[in-house]
């Protein structure tokens, strides 16, 4: 060993080696290190004794507490379901009228429905159900298939133009593209349809209204009705109100008539429980409350 060398600052001896000017002190390991090593090791050993810990051949030590994470979570899920059942059972059993008359149940509907709606429906309909271009505004009170809770629940269950066997089916034909109407005729119907909801029309469009009305009567009334108020049997929108799924400007209305439309809503049966669908139907019914 080299000559003993002391560090003047700490008074400690160095190890006697030096690398490129770096030396090391022979400081003993502070006791606190051993203390914490003992504490943490003790914690580990106790934990191993109590919980599943070490593999032994094809099995493992189960631990004295006999805790298994899978059983724990299953039990927690069951317990939570039992707690919720206090009101979900009533929602499942009662009719819509009865639930809507019950203020306590409706509070549960609002609390739970909101999260359910945002997690499952908001991607298309928006967090407040107000929709966007191509996705219906559920707060407007304008319903394609009907706005009573039974009908809403059915729409959620089977979807629209979905892959469910029971799906609601609806299609706006492509009158222009398929050659039923010429461009000028489409322009005329568009002008007429837009006049129904008192949208501002240009000079040329105002002149097309009469012609459009005739074409409408010949081609569109089967679904939209003579009064153009639509039909919830066919999922055909009311053309006289202020609600527009795709937009009310002349170009968009023209495109809807020319190229047709076929909206799509997935079916939720099998993904959501019947009670959840019921909750959503009721919640969707409350979306327009603020607006109305």
């Amino acid at each position: 060993m080299a000559i003993e060398k002391r560090d003047p600052v700490t008074g400690r001896v160095t190890t006697g080696h030096e690398w490129n000017g770096i030396e090391e002190l022979e400081t003993p390991i502070p006791r606190v290190v051993f203390f914490f090593l003992a504490v943490t090791t003790l914690f580990a050993v106790v934990y191993w004794v109590l919980m599943p810990a070490w593999p032994v051949g094809v099995t493992y030590t189960r631990g004295l507490l006999g805790i298994d994470q899978r059983e724990v979570v299953m039990r927690q899920v069951e317990d939570a379901a039992v707690l919720r059942a206090a009101w979900t059972d009533r929602v499942g059993a009662a009719g819509f009228e009865e639930i809507m008359a019950d203020a306590t149940l409706m509070q549960h509907v609002r609390d739970t429905g909101r999260t359910l709606f945002i997690d499952n429906c908001a991607a298309c309909h928006g967090t407040r159900g107000t929709g966007g271009p191509g996705f219906p505004n559920l707060a407007a009170g304008a319903w394609l298939w009907g706005g009573d809770p039974e009908t809403l629940a059915e729409t959620i269950r089977v979807g629209i133009n979905s892959t469910s066997d029971e799906t609601r089916v609806s299609q706006m034909l492509a009158f222009g593209r398929d050659g039923v109407l010429g461009r000028e005729e489409v322009r005329s119907v568009a002008a007429y349809v837009r006049s129904l909801s008192d949208l501002p029309l240009g000079e040329a469009d105002r002149g097309r209204i009469e012609a459009g009305k005739e074409i409408f009567a010949a081609n569109c009334v089967a679904c939209h009705g003579e009064d153009a108020k639509g039909s919830t049997d066919a999922g055909a929108p009311d053309l006289t109100d202020a609600a527009w799924i795709y937009g009310s400007d002349a170009q968009t209305v023209f495109t809807s008539i020319y190229s047709g439309r076929q909206g799509h809503m997935p079916h939720w049966e099998g993904r959501l429980s019947p009670v959840d669908i019921k909750l959503l139907a009721l919640y969707v019914g409350t979306l327009g409350e603020d607006a109305r």
Binding site: G21, I22, L25, T27
Partner: peptide, 16 residues
């Protein structure tokens, strides 16, 4: 240690 121009506090601590 180069920059501080100080020896390593404890060689034993380095090892464990």
């Amino acid at each position: 240690p180069k920059r501080a121009e100080r020896p390593i506090f404890s060689y034993r601590l380095s090892i464990i």
